[in-house]
Amino acid sequence: MAEGRRSGSGGFVDEMRSVAMKLHTRDQAREGEKQSQGKPWRKWEPTIDGYLKFLVDSKMVYDTIDIILHKADFPEYAEFRNTGLERAENLAKDLEWFKEQGHSVPEPSTPGVDYSLYIEELSKEDPQSFICHFYNTYFAHTAGGRMIGKKVAAKILNNKELEFYKWDGDLSQLLQNVREKLNRVAENWTRDDKDHCLEETEKSFKFNGDILHLMLT
């Protein structure tokens, strides 16, 4: 799920958001255009074991993105270091909490491994596509991801708020700072570069959706 409704910030980010919102179903967003497949997320019945799989695979993806940004095969990647949106450290705390509760934390599964390998390879040769995945992964978590997290916490965690859903500082300002960075980077892209980036949105949704559905297993 991409970021929800907000005041327009202009620039290329609005194009990315528009494409992403159209890939939502109607039960996910007002602007969604896709037909729902299976149960709407509001009626999901997550399990602890499935939720742990989701958190572990999510951490693997966020770890991979952090490594890519710090290695910076393309200079523009460095723009997105230390934005305050990073999630891997928070997820590590959550997984430690589950261990303390007596739960067994699994190894990463196919969805997380496949996505991590995909974006790692992509980042080496296709910065526009990688940045599409960066945007959709982080911004979706701050919007639809938070709603799902709250729903899951109510169903199976006695309303405990995980660190995954907490940010240091004003989240809206952190997001706006990253939008501005994304727009600045995209100013150096041709129209073909921008279209190429947008075309990667559906793959981002597919990979992230596969990880999200782990919580039902």
Rank of each mutant, 00 (worst) to 15 (best):
F139Q: 09
T190H: 03
I156N: 01
K194N: 08
F205G: 00
Y138D: 09
N159C: 06
G169Y: 13
E187R: 11
L174G: 08
G145P: 03
Y135N: 01
N177M: 08
H196M: 03
E200S: 08
T137A: 04
D193S: 08
L162A: 03
F205I: 02
L198W: 04
K181P: 08
L171V: 14
E163N: 13
F205M: 04
L182C: 12
K206C: 10
K160G: 01
W167L: 10
K160Y: 04
E180T: 13
L171C: 05
T190D: 04
I148L: 09
D170M: 04
E163G: 04
E187H: 05
L212R: 11
T190G: 04
V178T: 15
H213S: 08
N177V: 08
L174R: 11
Q173D: 11
N208I: 00
F134R: 02
N188P: 00
I211G: 02
A153V: 04
C197M: 14
R179Y: 15
F207V: 06
N177A: 12
G144M: 03
A186I: 10
M147N: 10
N183K: 11
D210A: 14
C197W: 08
M147Q: 12
A143S: 15
D170L: 05
E199W: 02
F164K: 09
L174T: 09
T142S: 13
D170H: 08
I211Q: 03
E161F: 00
L175F: 07
K151A: 15
R184Y: 09
L182V: 15
A154N: 13
N159D: 14
S172Y: 11
A153C: 03
A154K: 15
L182G: 05
R179C: 07
L174F: 03
D170A: 04
L162H: 01
R146D: 04
N177S: 10
A154Y: 01
K160A: 00
L198S: 07
K206G: 05
Y135M: 05
L174Y: 06
D195T: 01
L162D: 02
Y135F: 15
H133Q: 10
D168Q: 11
A186L: 10
T142K: 02
R146H: 07
K194C: 10
W189R: 05
T190M: 05
